[in-house]
Design a protein around this nucleic acid. Structure first.
Ligand code: MN
Ligand code: MN
Ligand code: MN
Ligand code: MN
Lengths: 219, 219
DNA sequence: AATAAAATTTAGATTAGTCTAAATATCGAT
DNA sequence: ATCGATATTTAGACTAATCTAAATTTTATT
């Protein structure tokens, strides 16, 4: 009936990897993402294909079937709802919730996830600014721009990041650049785009590279 | 490092079964509890013994070591805290939380469970009235008597059950005999101990057998 | 079009957990 | 003390998921 923990992770990986080129996902790409070997991936692709969760052609690659897509999107929904719970209810920081959500997303109970969704007030975005699919698998979109695109004097609110690597999130925690914070661009270096920012009454510097990965809602 | 889901369930089963006679737990008792075969249990007992989580003597039985007891008690702590969350925060009923908690108890994160405990206000008892071990593994106790021991005219509050079988809990839901409810004994049949109760402004009958399994705090 | 490099699959082995059937040990009578 | 019933362990096999090494296919380059 239900899928194993491992099968679920493969489906999620394929969903994630089919984002960019919209084409077929390669064996090596999946192996890299799941830190496993190409041989193991091949075995699993055959199995998922047998269950009609992916379309798979030897040597060509894999793509999710509608059913596979439904399951994978449901996992993303669960992952992001749990991340909201961990941050909003339990007071954890956005750098420490991903690994825990990675476990929680495999808990099996429709009643549970719908109750959790209601308890959290049907959030549309997770702590990293990623959209939470609804029960039908539909995503919300919202206007957002990278902090790097703001000009001197402009102001906005931090609503997420493009890359949610732990080290980067911790770095932002230390700078106080967390979701909900208002930031104003004081100066922007014309040569290397380094920013001088004002947030929470304090001034700080931010590299142009970091600024590209912080998403802002213009206020 | 960490234990597998399966190993954890064996430790929890041994803890549960060592309750009554305080002696050794038999292979067949574990097999029955986990719905598996005696042969499988024997294999696992060897493995857990190898890891110094149980003391095991062939043909005699098993008992938890201090380390095994610590782990098993931690699982019970997690299970019961999650049950409180599901009932108190998500509004689920006490008959539908056990199976979900059975999954949630295996989530690995000390930070998570301590945050959850704080979020819930460090509860001492779960929705079924069972004590929640603290982080050091110590249980609370409280005065409680079976509803069957109340005499006519006596009043008390429902705080738990002795047997938490789903069908029984659903039955109590329908009668309105849920945690926190005040009940007064109107009459008690002298022959078969059937009770006539008043709770929430309504009168109802309850068998003597059911009354033995409902725990009451005398008010 | 031929060939070298890269990607992918296959073959064969390993580990965790499980099972059935057979062997062995313990327990409870007589 | 012996015998039969019961409990437990062992032997051997199976599935899911993984790996390494070898074989095969695709691709990129001459
Ligand atoms: Mn995440
Ligand atoms: Mn996220
Ligand atoms: Mn329970
Ligand atoms: Mn309980």
């Amino acid at each position: 009936m239900g899928l194993s923990y491992v099968e679920e992770n493969y489906l999620k990986a394929i969903l994630k990897l089919s984002g960019a080129p919209e084409g077929l996902v390669s064996t090596n790409a999946i192996a890299a993402r799941l830190s496993t070997t190409a041989a193991s991936v091949t075995d699993m692709l055959k199995k998922l294909s047998e269950k009609d969760l992916i379309h798979y052609t030897r040597y060509k690659g894999a793509a999710l079937t509608p059913e596979g897509q439904r399951i994978a999107t449901g996992l993303v929904r669960k992952h992001r709802l749990w991340e909201v719970f961990l941050v909003e209810s339990l007071g954890m920081t956005w750098d420490e919730v991903h690994d825990i959500a990675e476990q929680l997303e495999h808990i099996q109970s429709d009643r549970l996830i719908e109750s959790l969704d209601a308890f959290l007030g049907h959030p549309k975005f997770d702590p990293h600014g990623d959209p939470i699919p609804n029960a039908e698998g539909k995503y919300s979109v919202r206007a957002q721009v990278p902090l790097s695109s703001l000009t001197e004097g402009q102001e906005g609110t931090v609503i997420g990041v493009r890359e949610d690597e732990t080290a980067f999130l911790r770095h932002l925690n230390e700078k106080g650049l967390t979701p909900g914070r208002t930031v104003r661009v004081l100066t922007k270096d014309t040569y290397d785009n380094t920013l001088r920012l004002l947030t929470d009454g304090r001034e700080l510097n931010l590299s142009g590279k970091a600024a590209k990965n912080i998403m802002i809602k213009i206020s």
